[in-house]
């Protein structure tokens, strides 16, 4: 990654920031943000690991000697965002960091929409970044929610999640702003909502209250009915608790008219704070290219659920509205709806 970015081997930068910089560059290039005049650009990035991957490596040095002092100030989440933003070819007029665990990147998009709608920014780059760390790998392991096999979202015999790493950002702007600079939007963020399960620090409620509230509020925000949704990109981590809880919430929202549903974590692993960004990008790709991604490793339906996920990729389908879920520890549940531009 250092090579891709042209960063010297001895330059102090965390892996989370490297991942973020690569994603930011791609987003900037695709949205042609190199020629934007004096438009105000906000950068909203989610992370939870931040600089932990270096801190866990050098923690003893931090306390006992002066060999690795350069990484002390890079530990916190905000330092990671700052380090990514420095790579932006222009002035970032406002930057901030969201840390709502596995829904961080989705909430970044939600804040982004708020910044645009209230006229506080002209362009927003929103998403998240997360690298693997021993800290959270071991942490998830203490909660006994890791699967030693490839994860099996929505499968009866699922054992847990697989951790992944990554970064993803979307570039957002109001329709008139995009038109004024002749940018061609990919789709519309037609609705979104953030709700709290308020059930347990790490477990989701059996009936998926927070997830249900988030999906319903996002539909209302978009002015859509459940039946309008063509595909749900589920949070679907593959843990026994999440998939059953999210499944019940989806049954409450969609009743017996369940849209296509898949979790794409079989392809990406659970990229935690980046997951909402990665899945926003996958949803936008699905919407614009007309396909439904497959839910890998599914073989048997969960007893208490009435639906099965889409196990084979469906191509050449017409999708108008996609709902994507991002849920985090602490019951931080967010849903976003992407719609085709009519």
């Amino acid at each position: 990654m250092r090579e891709m970015l042209g960063i010297a081997p001895d330059f102090a930068i965390t892996r989370t920031s490297l991942l973020g910089r690569i994603a930011l560059r791609e987003a900037v290039q695709m949205a042609v943000l190199t020629k934007i005049g004096n438009r105000r650009v906000a950068f909203v990035s989610g992370t939870t690991v931040g600089g932990m991957e270096k801190s866990e490596q050098f923690y003893r040095d931090f306390l006992e000697n002066d060999k690795r002092n350069e990484y002390i100030a890079l530990h916190d989440c905000g330092a990671c965002t700052e380090m990514i933003a420095k790579d932006f070819p222009g002035r970032i007029s406002f930057q901030t960091t969201i840390s709502t665990a596995c829904s961080s990147a989705a909430n970044a998009a939600i804040l982004g929409a708020g910044l645009l709608k209230t006229g506080r920014a002209d362009i927003v780059i929103a998403g998240g970044t997360e690298c693997l760390s021993k800290f959270h790998l071991d942490g998830f392991n203490t909660l006994m929610i890791l699967d030693s096999q490839p994860c099996r979202p929505f499968d009866k015999n699922r054992q847990g999640l697989n951790l992944g790493e990554g970064a993803a950002y979307v570039v957002m702007e109001m329709a008139d702003g995009a038109a004024a600079r002749q940018a061609k939007p990919l789709c519309r963020l037609s609705g979104y909502a953030n709700r709290c399960d308020a059930f347990h620090q790490t477990a989701s409620s059996p009936e998926g209250e927070g997830a249900y509230l988030a999906m319903m509020a996002a539909l209302q925000d978009a002015g859509l009915q459940p039946v309008d949704i063509d595909y749900v990109n589920a949070h679907g981590t593959g843990t026994p608790n999440n998939d059953e809880s999210e499944g019940h919430a989806m049954m409450r929202v969609f009743g017996n008219r369940m849209p296509w549903v898949s979790s794409t974590k079989g392809f990406t692993g659970h990229t935690t704070s980046a997951a909402g960004g990665v899945e926003n990008v996958i949803s936008i790709l699905a919407l614009t290219r007309g396909f439904v991604p497959a839910n890998l490793n599914f073989s048997e339906k969960i007893d208490s659920l009435d639906f099965t996920p889409t196990t084979e990729v469906k191509t050449h389908v017409n999708l108008n509205h996609i709902l994507t879920n991002s849920f985090g520890f602490g019951g931080n549940d967010s849903s976003c709806i992407f719609s085709k531009i009519s």
Binding site: A79, T100, R195, C196, A198, H200, L213, G330, N332
Partner: peptide, 25 residues
């Protein structure tokens, strides 16, 4: 995790509304 604070408050209040956490220096 950073969002433990907001979620503990929500848990204590049983507040299902908007819930977020900022960690920016």
């Amino acid at each position: 995790t950073h969002n433990t604070v907001s979620s503990q408050i929500a848990l204590k209040l049983q507040c299902h509304g908007y819930n977020s956490t900022y960690s920016h220096r």
